[in-house]
Nucleic acid binder design. Structure first.
Lengths: 222, 222
DNA sequence: GGTAACCTGTCATCAACCTGTCAGACCTCT
DNA sequence: AGAGGTCTGACAGGTTGATGACAGGTTACC
């Protein structure tokens, strides 16, 4: 397995490496967010151990970024502060597990093993974007943890958008997905976009129109 | 629960059915490998009881087949010969448990229950949702501690809903569970949903319709 | 063996919801 | 300002689901 550790304290980084390498893993350590970002953009890891408090920003931002790109690599968060809010925030952002410092190395090992095992068995069936989560097996869509009961067409559209989360979902592709070769009026897609927007309003996520191209899921702030 | 029994001896098949059906299970019996193969390809079961010595081949072949397809349905093997080699071979092929003939019916029941429980990652034999509780051993359903005497079909439906408590119980799956391959009118399921709703009215639990998808148990407040 | 109670599945009718169209308002780029 | 593209509320039709009533069958208990 190939592990990425993002941790600025050299002492902690060292013991993490010594603790995780013996399990047959290849471990790469980065001390800054920017380095880790570059690494994650260029290559594939089986697991990321991510410290939240880094010199050049919060690990949460990086986590959100990679999840919005559709990257489902398991992420274990390390945080110095113990607090429910912090942990909820991390898990909501797409972390798979967390550990507060100080932690015992055997416990870290156990959690890493569990995450690797889990991620290998079930290729993550969930599509996420910000507070949105779509379970491709059950067909459930949740927004901030609350279920959205979407009728079939809206569900199909939501999936189409999430498959391109953070990138453009081309108009043609969405039309194909929703209506196949069925003859349908020229603005049926817009109607369903409108319906989804209504459901998402005030949620922190919105659907941006890219004129002539398609649609894109975005953070409300962008 | 929906069980598949593959057993060529009609006598044994009969007692298996009588022993496993009473708890609200739907039991389908096939006497030949080819029939069972077709059934497994076409639909979903919660457990398979598989005799190894069948007229048109060994059950081991079927077991290997379905495991190679990634089907993880629990399988309990029945074998007339008692031998370590046989049993190892079966377990290696992906069986979850085995029993050598002759066997006691209560033991079979217990093993079946254990397998079903394990496959659903539960630790006891009860399914719960809010004030609802279903005891899979006795077949009792209680609501706020009071016993509900449900007729078999309603019991089967209740179990089907409870197995997915809080999540969608897909329509197709409920139909399979209740009626198996039996021909039944197109709205029989709705009739039983309606009957259960009547019993649950005012209890704090309700059955929600997910149009085109299935049904879901919910708190009344949702 | 007979009877009553009950379970089961079908049907007809009614209600709820999803779907796609349209029209007019709105936006954005030229 | 104009044109093409987009948005959205309203609406009608169709599909799916809900429910009460009923008939046939089964079970249990005299």
């Amino acid at each position: 397995m190939r592990l990425l550790i993002v941790e600025d304290d050299p002492l902690i980084a060292g013991s993490l490496t010594q603790c995780l390498a013996p399990l047959g893993n290849t471990v790469e350590v980065f001390h800054r967010l920017s380095e880790a970002r570059a690494a994650l953009a260029h290559s594939q890891f089986d697991l990321v151990v991510l410290d939240l408090g880094l010199p050049d920003g919060s690990g949460l931002a990086l986590l959100t970024e990679i999840r919005n790109r559709g990257n489902a690599t398991p992420v274990l968060i390390l945080t110095a502060r113990d607090g429910v809010a912090e942990r909820v925030q991390g898990l909501d952002a797409g972390a798979d597990d967390y550990l507060t410092k100080p932690f015992s190395l055997p416990e870290l090992q156990a959690r890493v093993r569990a995450l690797l095992r889990r991620s290998q068995q079930r290729t993550d069936n969930r599509l996420r974007f910000g507070p949105l989560c779509f379970d491709q097996i059950s067909g459930d869509v949740t927004l901030h943890g609350e279920r959205l009961d979407l009728p079939p067409r809206e569900l199909g559209l939501m999936e189409g958008l999430l498959l391109h989360a953070g990138r453009i979902a081309p108009r043609e592709q969405l039309l194909d997905r929703l209506f196949g070769f069925g003859e349908v009026g020229p603005n049926a897609l817009e109607v369903y976009i409108s319906r989804l927007r209504k459901r998402l309003s005030g949620s922190g996520v919105r659907i941006r129109t890219l004129r002539g191209l398609g649609y894109r899921l975005e953070d409300d702030s962008e």
